[in-house]
Amino acid sequence: MARFGMVVDTARCVGCMDCVVACKTENRLPEGLCRDWITTESRGQFPDVQLEIRSERCNHCDHPPCVTCCPTGASHVEDYGKTVQITAELCIGCKACLASCPYDARSIHPEGYADKCTFCMHRVKDGLLPACVAVCPTRCLHFGDLDDPNSDVSRLLASRRSHVLTPEAGTGPRVFFLT
């Protein structure tokens, strides 16, 4: 069984926000809501300065606190790809999942239910890549099965240095950033 994850090559990302626009378009997101976003992190003192541009989204964690705290089972781990998904018809909008996410990756849809990145599972099930990955002009976004050693993402993680966000939260995030 696949375990989907994403790899972001921060050396290639220019923060153009095509991934953000593609996500909003593909998922018909309302105004003022985004499921992925660009974060720019600069560290150090001139001339010793480091800059990292990241395309961020839900980390589809291995141990998702948003799933364990959900009182109705609306937030769940889908068998296919082990991704974290939300069933809108089960969600009561209690917002416990928003409070439980160390990445603040969730928000409330104007219709009242919790909303976040789905890794575009509707596209993946049709053999397509997530919209953000498909449109990225610098090819910095990679998607695939982390448990398959021959997948694009596994090979990148084996050959390059990478990090995840807030590993100390212990949630086992599955979006990796190549440095």
Binding site: V20, C34, W37, S42, L98
Partner: peptide
């Protein structure tokens, strides 16, 4: 120095929960 900027501005989440 550490400076972080983000394009995210989701209701109920940003600038802080």
């Amino acid at each position: 120095m550490l400076e972080i900027t983000t394009t995210r501005a989701n209701h109920l989440v940003d600038p802080s929960l």
